[in-house]
């Protein structure tokens, strides 16, 4: 179990809940749209090598909602600002699903900065076939479960019957997701054209059984970032971080 140090830095007038743990190079972990639980085996594995910086996205979890925010790029700007405040501009970035989109936006706006970039089933680009799964028409639990190929892994993290508090948090996060990524849903129409300048060593990680962001989208990401390597994880869903933490931890370099 990692021991978190919690703070609430104010960025763009918004109190952002930030948890920090571990020692080493800073690694900013940008969570899924369903948030990041307090404890995960992945954090244990990474905290031995990195100083983990894990925010609740503004408008998600217990971070304050920026009423003015209108798109995912706004979120990326806030995180660039946060890293500058923390004197960690060169932090490595680990973006999970929705957070992968934000991490890519961050890297695109300061292409020389991230020490490394790891994108796990990133949203943000239209898959050539299929669509990014739309939360708007499925229940909270069904959506969260869709992130897992192995339902036992979901149960291990959230319990077979997630608490009502958890459901309220998911509904709250959904609302913020809608506020900034309703149409087009959870993607940008410009991002793929802006990724070519990124110099950080980049790894795209995709669970082969990802039902939230079709793995076919990896092709578009690779076309946009020809130097990026793609690692496909067999027998794993969207939430590689929670289903195959060892495999993911091994891929993250400073």
């Amino acid at each position: 179990m990692v021991e978190w140090r919690e703070s609430q830095p104010s960025i763009a007038g918004v109190a952002v809940r930030l948890r920090r743990a571990g020692k080493g190079q800073p690694l900013l972990v940008l969570p899924h749209d369903i948030g990041a639980p307090a404890q995960l085996p992945l954090f244990d594995l990474l905290a031995t090598r990195f100083e983990l910086l894990v925010p609740d996205h503004p408008g998600f979890g217990t971070s304050e909602r920026p009423e003015w925010m209108r798109n995912a790029r706004d979120l990326a700007v806030m995180y660039r600002w946060l890293l500058t405040e923390l004197e960690a501009s060169r932090a490595a970035l680990l973006g999970l699903g929705f957070g992968g989109w934000i991490a890519a936006e961050m890297a695109s706006m300061s292409p020389a900065d991230p020490a490394s970039l790891t994108l796990v089933g990133p949203m943000g680009i239209k898959p050539p076939e299929g669509d990014i799964m739309d939360q708007a028409i499925v229940s909270y639990i069904d959506y969260a479960r869709a992130g897992f190929h192995d339902q036992a892994a979901f149960d291990a993290v959230y319990g077979a019957e997630p608490s009502t508090d958890q459901l309220v948090a998911w509904d709250h996060g959904r609302e913020m997701g809608f506020r900034i990524a309703w149409k087009p849903y959870m993607r940008s129409v410009t991002l793929e054209h802006l990724l070519g300048g990124i110099r950080a060593p980049t790894t795209l990680v995709w669970g082969e059984e990802d039902r939230v962001v079709p793995v076919g989208a990896a092709k578009i990401w690779q076309r946009a970032m020809p130097r990026a390597r793609l690692v496909r994880i067999p027998g794993c869903g969207h939430c590689v971080d929670m289903e195959q933490p060892e495999a993911l931890a091994r891929l993250i370099t400073a």
């Binding site: 939360q135 708007a136 028409i137 499925v138 229940s139 509904d171 959904r174 609302e175 809608f178 506020r179």
Partner: peptide
């Protein structure tokens, strides 16, 4: 209908 359809988040 599914309840989340009649009351989408927000």
């Amino acid at each position: 209908a599914h309840p989340v359809w009649s009351t989408p988040s927000g």
